[in-house]
Amino acid sequence: MSFAPNLPLIRLLVVKDWQLFQKQLAAYVLAGIIALALLGLAKPWAFHLGATLLLVVLVAAACFAISTSLLVERKEQTLAFVMSLPVTPLDFTLAKLAGNLLTFGVPYLVLLGGTAMVILGTPIPDGFVVFAVLVFGHVLLAYGLSLAVAMRVESEGWNTFVMIASMVLVNPFIMVIGQIDAIAGPARTDAITWSAPALAILAAQILLFALAIAWTAWSLGRRPAFY
């Protein structure tokens, strides 16, 4: 068995996932523009509505990216068709990971940039950027874990559980970091302060996300056959 990935084929599979994702992306973009317009009204109710809408879009992008490209395809037995193509498990794993990271990564980065723009371009204290990045870090980690489980575990129930549980944990996570003085204190000032606890949490989030993706790629990619 060859461990050299078939890059042209992987590219085709990623493009396929990206094209199937267009409608979802258009919906996220529309919701993002509505959220930014609400934030631009500069009213407290509009700010809360806009910020909530941004978070909903972020979570929806994470869940639907996994659901469309993995869970729905599994239900429709797309893998059986893919197995008839000259594709190795390594190619398929890498294509699925790359496609998912792309379809989630684009809206994720756009929303992260939009949120930073909102904080730095409005009277909201600039220090709140650190708090927001940690919340985005949590969603990234939740997405990474959900993706890893979706690729490893066939049970739809377990997949749904992990996806919902990890995303819902964003609420307690916000409460917990809101209790840490080194994070909550500077968030109320105009200075952007990366305190030791903030850096540690962010590093842990990124490390765990990278581990989840790397472990998935390694464990699935080295299989000699799909089953």
């Binding site: 523009i33 930014l36 317009a37 609400l38 631009g40 009204l41 909102v118 371009g121």
Partner: peptide, 10 residues
């Protein structure tokens, strides 16, 4: 002129 899309302008 704001970077945020203004509802009235849209």
């Amino acid at each position: 002129e704001s970077l945020f899309p203004q509802v009235w302008a849209l």
